[in-house]
Design a protein around this nucleic acid. Structure first.
Lengths: 345, 345
DNA sequence: TTTATCTACGCAATCGTTCCCGGTAACGAT
DNA sequence: ATCGTTACCGGGAACGATTGCGTAGATAAA
């Protein structure tokens, strides 16, 4: 099945003109007489002519499309980010091509190569939780290919980066727990390789220290897949609850980590917040409807998507190679609900 | 900023061959000597040559990309669908371009035209809740452009269609309520224009009639934006609760409708299921964690995405125009939880 | 009248790739 | 010596659009 569109040649043939004249007429060039323009415009209107973007891409060596790499789109945070990306891309005449790593390094590499071969003009990346080796991205970056990292960034590459203040988010969450009287606060963290994990654990640790609580390594559990698999969360929590002094509160550092934590407590009939309090990073828009309603650190996902895309498009359209890169840090928001506050119940 | 890739010409020049020879060597043509092939292959490997898909698209008049139109990707059902779409598209070497209508007819038209002008090979569509006029799609369809509808389909166009058995889903949900002893069952429905609304209300009505309960028009409330706005749900529920005989159970026919309904009850301190029972269509993967946990009709979203994409790609790659179109109906799944069952509490 | 200037258009190259035609050796058969 | 085959390879058009350059014809200036 082919779908034949009207081309500039068809117009030229029909009107007895050359393609160059038609092209110039359509672009309203001064060297085309008003009447010829009128004829061309009318005919192209009538025949529903649309310029072929593929031909344009070939000539101009740009496709007006940008690639996105995220772990999962079926995740509130990322779908909100993509929403933000799409809104800006759309306004600037770019379309977006989304691909998912499903937290797999291998898949991420394949996707990057695939997107690169698709002649995209730039890349928005949030790396997978398995990713350590960055050669697949550095390779493009070295050749001047525009890349912007968001959320899960990497230190060793000089690009624009957009994140939230993960340190502050975790600090505030932890401090809130401390102020609420919790003393044995554990951390349920994502992959150790991820920037966000390090930053959030940093905030967690600092809050403990600032409040004269001991920081204990055994109170930290990592889930390589960021809680995507229920089992890894279950294992991590089993470890924590086996400790001599069980934690009385948990800070979870990712969406799935937080909800799977709640699922675990529900399954084991552990009361939240009476037995254990829970606060976590989450962008779900129905944490208020959960049982108990969840205290969360929420990230301005939509704005992150917008900002990342603005930076990327600016770089793509820049005449000169960009040398000074921005690192934009957006504020997280703390929402206190039942899961950390016995009085709210 | 430009990003210069290695082309077939570069290889030809470097090896002192013609582009045709290089091209043939790369495609393993029989008329190229083994040693020439080897040289070409080695050099293209070394120089990291990747065929330019844009040039290929121009020649072959196909872009190996398919367009998706949904209302919102930040909606579990649709993000799961997109997941399914992406998995099949990926396996077949297609990439997907997603666009969102945000339930706006105008935006949908713009997106369709944009995608069409981007030389996509086919379109997967779930119409917006405002859409009545289908000229923007019929236009493409008349010209033989492959379109597959999923979930929110339209009767008046002959294409492949993939849906769940909405009638059965609503029937089962309603019947479950009746069997649980509820007598005054109201329906919170989406836009009247949507196929899914009609089908679901049909199932609701039939279940009532089969069980000798009166069907009352005033027990049906429509939300044009499918519950995307909390206010429209609030208004609808206010209407229902104003009735002389208040409903003792509600069947909600969309994700946001269901959750916003729960939000409303929580806000007004209406006990679920004691005051009013609630069951709804939803693909959230944490309805089990809500308070109360939600009884839902769940759709096999991932499979719907896969199936739709298979049908679309089959049509795209078909040699002859496709004339007999399939209408595939997948089974919904009923999950009974606390929101409709007092004993589970 | 001659020359210069301007108007309005066409030619052809270009982007990267494929593929239809050729073409030219080398070799064996006649 | 001539012809036919086979094996290999190159030239060039094509896909759709843009654009630098060339130029015919008209007009204006000398």
């Amino acid at each position: 099945m082919k779908f034949e569109a009207v081309t500039i040649k068809d117009i030229a043939r029909a009107l007895g003109l050359s393609t160059s004249t038609v092209s110039r007429a359509l672009r309203d060039s001064y060297e085309i007489s008003p009447e010829t323009k009128k004829r061309v415009l009318e005919y192209s209107e009538k025949s529903n002519y649309r310029p072929n973007p593929i031909a344009l891409s070939l000539k101009e060596k740009r496709s007006r499309s940008i690639g996105i790499i995220v772990c999962e789109i079926a995740n509130s945070f990322f779908s909100q980010i993509i929403n933000g990306i799409e809104s800006i891309a759309y306004d600037n005449g770019y379309n977006v091509i989304i691909s998912q790593s499903h937290e797999s390094y291998e898949r991420e590499v394949i996707n990057v190569q695939y997107l690169a071969s698709r002649s995209i003009d730039g890349l928005l990346v949030s790396v997978s939780s398995e990713t350590q080796d960055l050669e697949h991205l550095k390779n493009l970056h070295r050749r001047g290919f525009p890349i912007v990292f968001f959320d899960r960034i990497v230190d060793e590459m000089e690009t624009h980066k957009v994140i939230v203040d993960n340190f502050k988010g975790a600090y505030d969450a932890t401090e809130h727990l401390i102020k609420s009287g919790y003393k044995n606060i554990a951390a349920l963290a994502g992959s150790e390789y991820l920037s966000i994990t390090k930053e959030r654990l940093g905030g967690y640790r600092k809050a403990l220290e600032d409040n004269k609580l001991v920081f204990d390594e055994s109170y930290i559990q990592h889930c390589l897949h960021g809680g995507m698999l229920y089992d890894e969360v279950e294992n991590a929590l089993n470890q924590l609850l086996k400790l001599k002094t069980k934690p009385d509160a948990i800070v979870a550092s990712a969406d799935k980590l937080t909800t799977n934590c709640l699922r675990y407590f529900k399954k084991l009939n552990i009361k939240v917040p009476d037995d254990v309090a829970l606060i976590g990073f989450s962008n779900l828009d129905l944490t208020d409807l959960l049982s108990p309603s969840l205290s969360v650190v929420r990230q301005p996902a939509f704005e992150m998507g917008q900002l990342s895309t603005e930076l990327l498009i600016r770089q793509i359209e820049s005449k000169r190679p960009v040398t000074d890169f921005e690192r934009r840090i957006l504020p997280p928001q703390l929402f206190i609900r039942e899961s950390t506050d016995k009085d709210l119940r």
